[in-house]
Amino acid sequence: MSEKSELGIMDIFVNPMKVTMKQFFKSTFGKPATVMYPLEKRDPPPTYRGMNAIIWDLCIGCGICAEVCPNRCLKMKPVELSDEEHDRAWYGSHLAKRKHKPERPAINFGHCMFCGFCEDYCPTGAMTMTDFYEMADTSREGLIYPARTMKVDLEDLPQLPLTNYMMESPVLDIDPCIGCSKCVDNCPTNCIIMDVGPHDKTLKSGKLRNVENPYFDYTLCIGCSVCVKVCPADCLHMEPTSNSSLSGLTTEESPTEA
């Protein structure tokens, strides 16, 4: 390459100054690229991942958001629901009532990295991410948002089907099951029913008794694995689901044209 010899002594400043002069006039008589931040703000796109908000009317307290949070910045906290909130609950309000203590997520934004998994894996679409990003605070405690501060109320709720984004469902290992029905009590979608098991079982007392076992309605299961966690006899485990009705992570309905 002979580029080296092409440059003369005047190219020390002539060539670069051509560019800078041009830009100087451009930004003096035009608008510079800078955004004067506190006075003017740029609009985030609709997909922006900002601060979370939770539509309590849709939330069923399954805890999947806390499960998938890579930073564990999201915890399920017990809350007291008012009667109005009970009535407004669109999805499984009877469950929320039945449960002894309903739980709703609280977020520590000091740990949050805004990855958006909680939004993507929420089976009801209750967890949303807004485009609000100015949440700086002077203390770490100020970044901990209790469950009730995350609540938003929407007029027209999105009607989404329950979806198992976790790709797994619980499977019963029937022998150790003691028929305590804890899984039924805790299942957030009411997809478990207790029914008479296939065979009798010897209890500790020596009696032979027919034990009720849980049966799963996999079309309603969201794979939250709450039943697995509460099971006292460790008779449940998660297995990759083969249910074809469950869709993947597609949040956008229609693919755009190329």
């Binding site: 800078t20 930004s27 003096t28 510079p32 690229a33 800078t34 004067m36």
Partner: peptide, 12 residues
């Protein structure tokens, strides 16, 4: 001038 060259606004 530096700001204008660099497409900024400078101290304002």
């Amino acid at each position: 001038i530096a700001a204008r060259i660099q497409d900024r606004r400078g101290p304002m």
